[in-house]
Design a binder for these strands. Structure first.
Lengths: 150, 150
DNA sequence: GCCGACTGTTGGCAGCACCAACGAATTCGT
DNA sequence: ACGAATTCGTTGGTGCTGCCAACAGTCGGC
């Protein structure tokens, strides 16, 4: 070993809040992905939305999850293929598909809920409960500020 | 207008710290990307590393920026094509390329520094300076925790 | 001198976030 | 009532970021 210079990130990057934010998000996202196993975040988001909204159109689900219509299609294709969700044309508005969670879908969602909660613990384990709350609050305010501006 | 149901995200997602983190990061990242204009974050990171490390190998730059060797190659290809960086074989170790910032590169970096700083202001504008410091500290601790575990 | 490790390079993949266009269906404006 | 504008699902792309595998050339330790 030739006495590595420690390879510290450049000063400008180390002090850059946006970088800290995106890199930490990437680390946590990686943990989440591992926790979700065979599912993607899109799958979990849509199942959660379907469970809470009840029968809803794809557009409604997409809007609730903040995802693009085309990505909703792809994710629902996966979920229907696994029998976790049913897509049926809405008789009241034939443009729409009514999406509902199947029994298997509900079971899968509960399972994922557990896995996701477990990951939250590990992801933010360096912080006390109070600190986690502070972090969530600060992030929520930043998030909201940028979301409000459409 | 037909009284939109507000399309609030599902409860489970709204309360999910990891989601808050990743979505906020995405919002901020978008601002950064706009601020960087014709450059990517990789470009800025590498130029910053090159400026602070002085003449260095691609491997050293990549390690400093936490990016993959292959991505370093691609980004440096862009930067050399724009004349912002020079790649020369290291006579002391012919495996390596010595990378240095050109005059144009330094000027471009200064310009980007300014743009990036301006973006930080806008990105975290809902927070007071104290709160920004708290946020940075919390993120840094989470970040460090996951980084230490290799 | 050999073998293992490192370097740059190529080429690939996955996830997430987008965007454009299209046909079918519905709603709005008048 | 009827044409225009809008909505919905779908298809098929794009870009950025973060990876990984393989390979040839080079170097270091033994």
């Amino acid at each position: 070993m030739t006495a590595r210079p420690a390879a510290q990130p450049p000063e400008r990057l180390r002090r850059l809040p946006s970088r800290l934010l995106t890199r930490t998000a990437a680390q946590v996202q990686r943990l989440v992905a591992e926790g979700l196993g065979e599912y993607r975040t899109h799958h979990y988001a849509l199942m959660a939305a379907a469970a809470e909204l009840g029968p809803a159109s794809q557009a409604a689900l997409g809007q609730a999850c903040g995802m693009d219509r085309s990505d909703v299609v792809a994710a629902l294709d996966d979920l229907t293929a696994r029998g976790l969700v049913r897509r049926a044309p809405d008789p009241a508005d034939r443009r729409r598909n009514t999406v509902v969670l199947t029994g298997d879908g509900e079971r899968a969602l509960h399972e994922l809920d557990a896995r996701v909660q477990e990951v939250q613990q590990r992801a933010f384990s360096p912080l006390t409960p109070d600190e986690r709350a502070v972090l969530a609050d600060l992030l929520a305010r930043v998030n909201r500020h940028h979301a409000e501006a459409e």
